[in-house]
């Protein structure tokens, strides 16, 4: 599979978030701020987003890596790294 561009990856992540929180205004997210709290994503929503991302990208995130996913950029960096590995 050709490597995903950052934009495509971002769209995939946004789709996964919107599937759980259809009203989320992701463009209004302040950069570098924790996205879960801002978008009111609780632990159950978060789990569902990870399940969805695993389906779409084939990347399963171990719980011990959750701390790397606090910002949207961090989440993208993490996925990019895992996809490249």
């Amino acid at each position: 599979m050709a490597p995903l561009s950052r934009d495509t990856l971002r769209d995939t992540v946004i789709d996964a978030i919107l599937a759980v929180a259809p009203e989320a205004d992701i463009d209004a997210l302040p950069a570098g701020r924790p996205w879960r709290e801002a978008l009111e994503i609780d632990s159950f929503d978060f789990l569902n987003i990870l399940v969805d991302l695993e389906k779409r990208l084939g990347v399963g995130v171990p719980e011990s890596d959750y701390h790397e996913l606090e910002t949207l950029e961090g989440l993208l960096d993490y996925l990019e790294r895992r996809l490249a590995a």
Partner: peptide, 17 residues
């Protein structure tokens, strides 16, 4: 919880609540 979830796929994990 971390020990319980460590070997589990995302869909099989427990959440703290």
């Amino acid at each position: 919880l971390a020990a319980y979830n460590a070997e589990r796929s995302v869909a099989e994990r427990l959440i703290f609540p």
